[in-house]
Design a protein around this nucleic acid. Structure first.
Lengths: 154, 154
DNA sequence: TTGAGTATATAAGCATGCTTATTATATACC
DNA sequence: GGTATATAATAAGCATGCTTATATACTCAA
């Protein structure tokens, strides 16, 4: 029972992508005053929650490729936002830690994130919020599963 | 009446961003067989629907900066996917058109997009789909409006 | 214990997005 | 008509993401 959307800008895929763009921009604007970009802010929040893990761990948390994280960490290390330490148990690995400098930004980043969620869901009551989240989770599941078509074509 | 989300990966902002990432990847995979990237596919669909406009027009349609579109068009022109023509009424402007080569890709791109929307909303009935879209539109409005906080802080 | 396979980090090169700045052309106002 | 402002396109330089490839180190099995 799928509704067909002839115009690109009136279909749910476009709406979803559009929302995400707006969300990314808004988050970026809000964390910029803390002197970090949005992906950097996400890494810092993860570093606070799970400190001292190797780069592969954070790449998986952020759902980006290890090389992408590696280069992000290069820049952040140079900016004094992240510290790489040797792993005593694995000479390949580098364990990541917050620095004094980045620890001081966490509160501002968290406030930016909280404010953003509040803005995003303005006018939603608790029930609507729950419905919205449940639907997002269903879409996430749908998109994560290898689709029938792709399996058939590939 | 805002629910507080302590962990980053259980809040609606994360869910929305996550869905969008999945959507972008899925779209990218599907149009790759047509030999274009996701943003290039979006431009081609816009070129089919609104041919012969200047670059600023398409930048606004895709909600990207003119310079971003300019460089995308550089690559696509070189690949024979877009044609730049002089505007007889404005010597600054370049009007964009599909080529024979890119025209042949439109059907595949449209099929990829339709299949993706179908996959994304698998299991949604028409009513749920309508509710989901309405909520996405509300979020879009919330994120587009300059927030109270930003206005107050700025 | 060696040898194959796997895991970690990184390099190279590309596409997409941004901000800021520049050039050329249009337009509008005095 | 001439200046001041706008707009269109593009350049420079950066951050983030990818694919593909490589060096090093670890692990497991023969």
């Amino acid at each position: 029972m799928l509704i067909i959307y002839p115009a690109m800008d009136t279909n749910p895929g476009y709406l979803l992508a559009d929302n995400s763009r707006l969300l990314r921009r808004a988050f970026d604007e809000r964390v910029r005053e803390a002197g970090v970009t949005a992906p950097q802010a996400r890494l810092l929040l993860n570093l606070e929650r799970h400190p001292g893990r190797n780069q592969a761990f954070y790449a998986e948390r952020l759902e980006i490729e290890p090389i992408t994280l590696c280069r992000m960490v290069d820049r952040m290390e140079e900016a004094g936002l992240v510290e790489r330490r040797a792993d005593p148990d694995d000479r390949r690995a580098r364990l990541l830690h917050l620095t004094v400098r980045s620890r001081g930004k966490i509160a501002r980043i968290r406030a930016a994130l909280d404010g953003l969620i509040e803005t995003m869901l303005a006018g939603f009551d608790a029930e609507e919020e729950a419905v919205f989240m449940a639907m997002l989770e269903r879409v996430s599941t749908n998109l994560s599963a290898p689709s029938k078509e792709l399996a058939a074509n590939g």
